[in-house]
Amino acid sequence: MSAFLDIIASAGLWAAVLRIATPLIFGTLGALLSERSGVLNLGIEGIMTFGAMIGWLAVFNGADLWTGMLVAALSGALFGLVHAAMTVSLGLSQHVTGLGITLFASSLSYYIFRLAVPLASTPPTVTPFQPISVPGLSDLPFIGPALFTQTLPTYLSIVIALLLAYIVYRTPLGLALRMSGENPHAAEAQGVDPIKVRYGAIMAGSALMAMGGAFLTLSAFNSFFPTMVQGRGWICIALVVFASWRPGRALFGALLFAFFDAFQLRLQTVLGNVPYQIFLMMPYILSIAALAVMARRARVPQALMQPYRRGER
């Protein structure tokens, strides 16, 4: 029992929580934005992989770190454009299109990476984002090292979550977004073009997903390797349901999830005789459990996964 308390009382745990949560916050917000407009984007896993690769590659070739993030975001928006063209304009199956985007984007990442970086025994690295110290706050005992020794993208992800919550609930744009996801016919009658809204939401959401991927290679680690996203995208899709499609709860959900993940990582060293695979399974099982608990309670956007064709019922 005291081992558990020791883990929770360590500042390192809480610093890790924020670090682990960051890509999930980006990804969950991206998926949420898209789904609020009525379109499920299962391209997330591949888009995160591509963002991780292309952001890293840009920095490896001399771009600065923020340019790397921007390149990743733009690449994500491009994949979003493909997804939107297929699911919104053509009304194709959102499930299958998204999986297709994931398979395409991840294999394209590996292809480009292998072309640009020849096989080496140690993968090449870049200098990642460094933790910044917040004057005053970082020097506080416990709270300082626990919460204020992160890199800038982590703080950015939290700002985006709050901003998105504001936009969704407090602005005309957010109203248009919600209407497109709840009842596109009514939105159209009010002079909102659900097709444009969906294109915008999918592209912006995909940009966020790619930034979440880029965080992995430009802040959490400093190199790219295949399969590094490890199902984080799918976990984000589950977190959207857990959050009941609300940005604030998405932030909370990602942090809660990251807490369990950081906790189990430290528990591994305490419980040395349990196979490590059991711990690695936990995030996935936890996601499934969260889905089972929340699926019926969550308020699904009513037009989610329904293609909208003007003049058709």
Binding site: H95, Q230, Q277, M281, Y284, I285, L291, A295
Partner: peptide, 21 residues
């Protein structure tokens, strides 16, 4: 059938569990 959970995500997540198993 029991909790109305979309099987896409759950069947995907179970891939990782199965390989770890």
């Amino acid at each position: 059938l029991r909790f109305s959970v979309d099987e896409v995500v759950t069947s995907l997540l179970l891939n990782f569990v199965a390989v770890l198993f």
